[in-house]
């Protein structure tokens, strides 16, 4: 231990004390001034202007991109609106067509129904007229038949009857016929 201390202190005696650590060496001061001057002038004259240039270029580029994007967005919106308009128009048109179709169909339907009704009516009318005519024809036929029959009968009866009875009978018969009709 003692030997250590002695060597330590002897060496300390030889070299300068710790104070030297706290005193600036002139040569290092000069080197430091030189070095710091290099750094300072480089930063001042080149680095910061270069950086500013880069930053402004970047912000310009970003702004350009933003405005481009805005434009694109605007265009896209416009296109979309156009399409929406188109689609809306198409809807309307479809509706119109459908409406028209419906109207036409309605009209057609009405026409057809009316025609059918008319036809039916005419047919019915005709049929009625026909049947009327037939009836008339038949009734007149029957009448004539009856007349003939009655004539025949009356001739047969009349031959066997008195004149008074004949007349009476004819009158009755005619009456009956009249009510029959």
């Amino acid at each position: 231990m003692n030997i250590n201390l002695v060597t330590f202190l002897a060496e300390a005696e030889e070299s300068s004390s710790g104070l030297e650590l706290l005193l600036p060496a002139t040569s290092e001061l000069v080197a430091g001034i030189f070095a710091f001057a290099i750094v300072f002038f480089f930063v001042w004259k080149w680095a910061l202007p270069a950086l500013d240039e880069t930053l402004s270029a970047r912000s310009e580029a970003i702004e350009g991109q933003i405005s481009k994007a805005k434009n694109e967005k605007y265009e896209a919106q416009k296109t979309r609106e156009d399409y929406q308009k188109l689609v809306a128009n198409a809807d309307e048109e479809v509706r119109k067509i459908i409406d028209e179709g419906k109207a036409t169909a309605e009209k057609l339907k009405e026409g057809i129904v009316n025609e059918a009704k008319e036809e039916a009516e005419t047919i019915i009318e005709k049929a009625r007229a026909d049947s009327e005519a037939e009836r008339d024809r038949i009734s007149s036929e029957i009448k004539s038949e009856v007349a003939n029959l009655s004539l025949e009968i009356s001739e047969k009866v009349a031959s066997s009857m008195s004149k008074g009875d004949q007349e009476k009978l004819i009158n009755e018969f005619i009456k009956e016929m009249g009510s029959d009709k």
């Binding site: 030189f34 750094v39 080149w46 270069a50």
Partner: peptide
């Protein structure tokens, strides 16, 4: 006497310059 220290001082300055130069040389976006 010029020792290692003096060279290191100058070297530090040069390193700063090289670093900044490398970082700012290409002005890419």
């Amino acid at each position: 006497g010029i020792s290692r220290t003096h060279f290191l001082i100058i070297f530090a300055a040069l390193l700063v310059v090289i670093f900044l130069f490398a970082g700012l040389r290409k002005k890419s976006v």
